[in-house]
């Protein structure tokens, strides 16, 4: 999922200070799962904003709505009827959702309420960790299902650096050495020979080095 964290309240308040009628829009997808911007967080942020503005002597009208997805135009279209009564939109979706709202509702200022972080997985309740950097050319088939790009601090492709100690990365004792994980897993699978294969220098064009990326499925695209 795409992970996110709510921005500090002060930053959100600074954005919407000049406005009186706000539409606060959540997203039912990734940001719901990582407890950053789903229906529940919309309610909490709305209540926090109401109280904070009221404490400062300002009354503000906040409408709450959570869309099934904010990164799809079909869903973003659903709230067209709500737009007349609002001065600004605050989106609790990831950066994709915020931009889709801004693209569709060009005459309304749209502000982000979360900082989009990374593509990650849940390690345990309340903890999410980075797992993928969307490099566009997946290596997991030859690295034992562990990504050296997302999980090695130096993005090394052919084994660990000298900073790998007791299975941990030199940046922190909390961070596993990705190459230690890869080796352990290859050994478990009886695929140690894979480790000897040299991975050539990576072509980073597929990772964004060639400019903004796009996927076109000709059979689906109109």
């Amino acid at each position: 999922m795409i992970t996110a964290e709510r921005k500090p309240l002060k930053e959100i308040m600074d954005y919407i200070q000049p406005f009186n009628r706000i539409l606060l829009v959540g997203c039912n997808e990734c940001v719901t799962v990582c407890s950053a911007g789903g229906r529940k967080e919309v309610g909490l942020l709305s209540s926090a904003l109401q109280s904070a503005f009221l404490s400062a002597g300002k009354s503000i009208e906040i409408k709450e709505h959570t869309l099934e997805r904010q990164c799809d135009p079909e869903y973003v279209e659903e709230i067209v009827g709500m737009m007349d009564g609002v001065d600004a939109v605050v989106s609790m979706a990831c950066g994709c959702g915020v931009q889709e709202m801004a693209r569709r509702y060009k005459n309304k200022p749209v502000f982000p309420a979360v900082n989009t972080k990374f593509m990650g997985a849940s390690e345990r309740q309340g903890v999410w960790a980075e797992r993928c950097q969307g490099c566009g050319n997946c290596l997991l088939g030859i690295t034992g299902g562990i990504c050296p790009i997302a999980r090695c601090s130096k993005q090394l492709m052919n084994g660990p650096c000298g900073g790998s100690t007791n299975g941990k990365c030199e940046i922190s004792k909390e961070v596993d050495c990705a190459w230690q994980l890869i080796w352990d897993r290859l050994k478990m699978l009886g695929q140690e020979d894979r480790y000897l294969d040299i991975i050539p220098a990576k072509d980073w064009r597929t990772a964004g080095g060639g400019g903004p990326r796009k996927i076109v499925r000709e059979d689906l695209a109109g």
């Binding site: 309240l9 109280s51 904070a52 404490s55």
Partner: peptide
């Protein structure tokens, strides 16, 4: 902590 942030 949230209540501190809100100002309550």
């Amino acid at each position: 902590k949230s209540l501190d942030e809100i100002g309550i």
